[in-house]
Design a protein around this nucleic acid. Structure first.
Lengths: 260, 260
DNA sequence: CGAACTTTTGATATCACTCAAGGGACGTGG
DNA sequence: CCACGTCCCTTGAGTGATATCAAAAGTTCG
């Protein structure tokens, strides 16, 4: 927010992120449901021409009329709200493969803002494209709906996190969650991944003060649990970090292709 | 949780909540979209035979395979999670007209529990019924999808509430939100409504301690903002309560039938 | 190389938690 | 209809985790 915050204009650039195995959307949906070759081709086509977006760009702003659905292909973005008093709460991270709500076009007005934290590649899907996917590609539809349920479940888990865990536990939990989500789209190497956020962002995520986040991170480092430098997080002792956070990944519904 | 927590068995009883204007589901959806007479008849039929449920009954439990969608017709329920340490976080209230996630059948396992707080009337919609509504009743589908978006937006607002507001502000915000939601289904009289929760529940909702909730409620009472007795909340000074909570109802998307 | 931002440190304040116990309400059974 | 148990609400005293305020040190980048 203190950032430059330019609005996403008519932007630049191509670059084909097609190669199916590297397409985070395809990877993610395949974690949720079986896709046909035709499905993969459809998804690859849709996500073929992302726009490059500069850090700090608002993808949509609170008060805007929603205009299609955003899909993040690279980089990281988050949803957040600003209160009148100036405090901010971050309510979700969007990592590659993530979309914002499928049916958002039903609403007349956005109730929060989505901002790119790092340089991102983003695709905008028109309401028509979304409708086509949902109507004519049942497996894709299934995957997308499931992804949305997981987004909601994640929100609930964040509520538990902020409502009922201590400062250190909150951060630990966040780090564990993001590791799994980054892994699911092939963006973690071992137990480390890009985490392009400031300590201020972490504070606004976990409902704390930047100062306290700083001290808490130091604790986690001293205990040999993590390393966090130059926008990259390395988890040094995942089992202990998970135990500390009491992290149970069931709410992410990874690898449960089952169900009716 | 300390409650008896019997599992919802094959339960009793009928009683026809049909009369369209009193059907909370119909009222709620009409706030979101225009319904035809046929739509109203469909909805009335679906919700015609609620089961009576005793306070403390778990409608679904974490770990269960989801089996259809619940619709609350009367009373109040909430979603919550228990941590291993015994602490609990309530993540949503379900008031009459509310459903749990439409697509929940896509998941193999529930990641949280839903419990009736008061005596409730509840309808279980089978996955087939839900599919039929979504496929063959476009306006109903639209209303239901919108309702789901609002549920998600509400979750985000709760995150702001817990993450960034003081004890008094949190309670004030919750009370304001519930007033609007109860009004939307015709269950508020003036500025008061049934609120069948204990102070312990309020603590688990707002991420606080019961003791502190108690003291905070006393403050709100002393300031002439509310009255809370025998499971009924009366808001004495709504403007001041709203101001205290910095309550902006935009996230509830009430009365915006607009949008593409 | 300088400006803007971020991270770190120190000192102090406070809001909310903990522990503990008393009082009230409500229901059940004798 | 009283006695008793069980929740729930209330109060008090003491503590602790996290916030606040302020400033220095480190980074990043144009």
């Amino acid at each position: 927010m203190s950032q430059l915050a330019r609005v996403w204009g008519g932007h630049i650039m191509t670059e084909c992120s097609s190669d199916a195995a590297n397409n985070p959307l395809i990877r993610k949906l395949e974690g949720f449901t079986a896709l046909s070759d035709a499905d993969r081709i459809t998804l690859a086509r849709i996500s073929a021409e992302p726009r490059q977006v500069v850090p700090g760009t608002d993808l949509v702003r609170e008060g805007d009329a929603p205009d299609g659905v955003f899909l993040v292909m690279k980089g990281m973005a988050f949803r957040h709200k600003l209160r009148a008093t100036g405090t901010r709460q971050i309510m979700a991270y969007l990592v590659p493969g993530d979309l914002c709500d499928l049916d958002v076009a039903l609403l007349s007005e956005m109730d929060h803002t989505i901002t790119a934290v790092s340089a991102c590649e983003v695709v905008r899907l028109t309401p028509e494209m979304v409708a086509d996917l949902l109507a004519n590609h049942p497996q894709i539809a299934r995957g997308l709906r499931k992804a949305q349920l997981v987004d909601e479940a994640t929100l609930r888990e964040w509520l538990v996190n902020i409502g009922r865990r201590s400062a250190a536990e909150r951060l630990a939990h966040l780090f564990c969650e993001l590791l799994l989500r980054m892994r699911a789209v092939g963006l973690a190497s071992g137990d480390s991944y890009e985490l392009p956020v400031t300590q201020i962002d972490l504070a606004d995520t976990t409902g704390q003060t930047p100062v306290h986040v700083n001290r808490t991170l130091q604790e986690l480092r001293e205990q040999g649990l993590i390393e966090l430098r130059s926008r990259r997080l390395k988890i040094l002792d995942l089992p202990r970090l998970r135990a500390l956070a009491e992290f149970r990944p069931n709410y992410l519904h990874l690898g449960d292709q089952a169900a009716a």
